[in-house]
Simulated assay, not measured.
Amino acid sequence: MDQRVQVLPDEDGVRVIVCGGEFDQDSLGLLREAGTAAVEDPGVRRIVLDVTAVAFADSSMLNLMLFLLRSGRLVLAGPVPDRLGRLLDVTAVRALFITADGVEAARSL
């Protein structure tokens, strides 16, 4: 399964996690590790999850996104891809997520 997870260097307490490819329960490990580390780091005041290159996401990724959201520090960097957007719409949670147009906009919120 084609995927990538990259954690960019923190800037002013903002941690950016770039993810791309397909994410399901079997392939979520690296993204879960990166997200959990961000939530547990008291120096991180904002977590930016760049989802622009997500090709597929199932309920496992949605659960991880909700976990990050509960930290009160999550901003999605979009635009949100159609397939991920449909998952957010079908589960009626899209409105819960703050979404910015790109990483730099998300950093500045």
Rank of each mutant, 00 (worst) to 15 (best):
V75S: 03
I47L: 08
L62R: 13
N63K: 10
F56M: 09
A106T: 03
L8H: 14
R45Y: 01
S60E: 03
E104R: 13
L109A: 10
R86D: 13
V16L: 05
T36L: 11
A57Y: 07
E33F: 01
D50G: 10
L68A: 01
M65F: 13
V44S: 05
V7R: 14
A106C: 11
Q25M: 13
M61T: 15
A37T: 00
L62K: 00
G72C: 05
V93S: 04
V39W: 02
G72V: 08
A100R: 08
M1P: 12
Q3Y: 12
V5W: 06
T99I: 15
T91V: 09
M65V: 11
G78E: 07
L66P: 07
D10Q: 11
L62N: 09
G35C: 05
R32Y: 03
R4D: 07
V103K: 04
S59R: 10
I17E: 02
S27R: 05
R15C: 14
R46T: 06
Q6M: 05
P79S: 03
S59D: 10
S71R: 04
E22S: 14
E33W: 02
S71M: 03
A95R: 15
V103R: 00
V14C: 11
A106N: 11
E40Y: 06
L31A: 03
V39Q: 03
L68R: 05
A55P: 00
V80P: 06
A55H: 07
V7K: 11
E104G: 02
V14W: 01
A38H: 06
E33I: 00
L84F: 14
V80D: 05
S108N: 12
V18Q: 15
A34D: 01
G102T: 14
M61F: 15
E11W: 05
D26K: 08
E40N: 13
L76Q: 05
D41A: 12
F23Q: 06
A55N: 11
D82G: 13
L31R: 01
S27Y: 04
D2C: 00
V75C: 07
L74D: 02
V75Y: 12
A95P: 01
A95G: 15
R46V: 04
G29K: 06
E22T: 09
V7G: 09
R32K: 07
L28W: 06
L69F: 12
F67E: 09
A106H: 06
L66R: 07
V7Y: 02
G35Y: 01
P9W: 10
F97E: 14
T52F: 10
R15P: 11
R4W: 04
D24E: 04
V75M: 01
S27W: 02
I47G: 01
V39D: 07
I17K: 04
E40R: 13
R94C: 10
D58W: 01
L96I: 03
T52K: 08
R83D: 10
S59V: 04
T99W: 02
R73W: 00
V39L: 13
L109F: 13
Q6R: 14
P81T: 12
L28C: 09
L31C: 08
G20I: 04
A57Q: 10
D89G: 09
Q3G: 05
G43D: 07
Q3E: 09
A100L: 08
D50A: 11
G21W: 03
L64F: 01
V103G: 12
D2A: 12
